[in-house]
Simulated assay, not measured.
Amino acid sequence: MDAIFVCDRQYQHHAFSTSPASERLDRCLFYLDEIHTRGTDFKFPNEFRAAVTLGNGLTKDRLVQACMRMRKLGKGNGNDHISLTDILRWVYENTQQATWDGLHHWATQSLSFQQKISAFRNFDWNNYQQILTNIMMENLAKASLEAEILDLKTMYGHKKTFQTVYEIYSARYQYSNTGYSTEIHEAVSKRLLDYGGAKTLLTQLLDEEQQRELEREQEAEEERQQIRPIAAVPCEPILHHEIMNLCEMHDPILNLSRLPNVFCPITDAFIGTTFYRESQPGCWQENLWITTEFKRVIQTKGESLDPFLRPPRWILIYRNQHIIFLSPYEANELMDCLQYFYDKSPSKKL
């Protein structure tokens, strides 16, 4: 199931429901690209403000989808520097152009579909006892296979001429025809004649736009593939009694430097990461500490701890002198203890 994740400045991913951003939406800036305007639903505060960016070639469907993220669109006041009528006219012109530009790509896809139909004609679909041999399956694969790479002669060896989308499709059909479906061919040709009009394109038999589309799809697929951290065994949480002593306001102050098994300098948090060499241990203030539990995340076997660097979410200011970063487990235990002392304090009773 899809879920919303937050990526921090260290490129670590956390579930949105457990991240600090979920509690401070009013202090966050959200940017939704075109893909994430679909299926994304945030519960924004009432005073939240939003804007839709207009890009080159923006179509009606993409504009409406983006505007639907603003649930209260039209219920507030704003300063419109551009007339809405002008925007809609411009968007509809882009939509018409995008529809026309996509006609010859749609027709090209029909050729691929017709090739698959032709490949499956060798099967008798009414014979349920038909035995599919290895030779039949190999022939099916060969007949359905499309060239992944086009040589330069095929790409650029033909003269560029101005042609209508119907003429482009007809030339490609004749170039690659190996007994394709006549019925589908006639239906596609009729649609191109009805909607293609007399507008022409400067194109070749196989234009380079197909290759660019393939490259863009490959780049988008590579961007979607995220490198996940390796599987690891988490450390069992430990609660030292010195951590609970931090709540005792009437006891003598703890000397944190004499408790190395519980408290460490903040630079120890970067041990095992690539940042440790750049952390400059001597440049940090001496009153910045982490607990050993904050540092313990996984049972390491020498691998890099970059993906497992714990985010500094829980901070304790000890006697107004020391700043200590805690693990979530320690913070959860201390919150109950601090609440108990707060309820017993004289100022609370007054």
Rank of each mutant, 00 (worst) to 15 (best):
F5P: 01
S17Q: 09
S19G: 10
P20C: 12
R24V: 13
L25K: 13
L29A: 15
E34D: 11
H36V: 12
T37C: 14
N46Y: 09
E47F: 05
V52F: 00
L54D: 10
G55Y: 14
Q65R: 11
A66R: 07
K75L: 08
K75Y: 05
H81D: 10
S83Y: 05
L84C: 06
D86N: 09
T95N: 09
Q97L: 01
W100E: 03
D101V: 05
L103A: 04
W106S: 15
T108M: 08
Q109T: 00
S118G: 07
F120D: 01
N122Q: 05
D124E: 08
N126H: 05
Q129I: 03
I131Q: 15
I131C: 13
L132M: 04
T133S: 15
E138R: 11
L145T: 04
A147K: 11
E148V: 13
D151V: 12
H158E: 15
K159F: 02
G179F: 06
A187D: 13
V188F: 11
L192T: 06
L201M: 11
Q211S: 14
L214D: 11
E223N: 05
Q226W: 05
I230M: 12
I238E: 07
M244S: 08
T273R: 02
G282P: 04
G282I: 08
Q285Y: 11
L288T: 01
W289Y: 06
F294D: 00
F294Q: 02
L309T: 08
I317Q: 07
R319T: 01
I323T: 11
N332Q: 14
E333C: 09
L334D: 04
D336W: 03
Y340L: 02
Y342M: 03
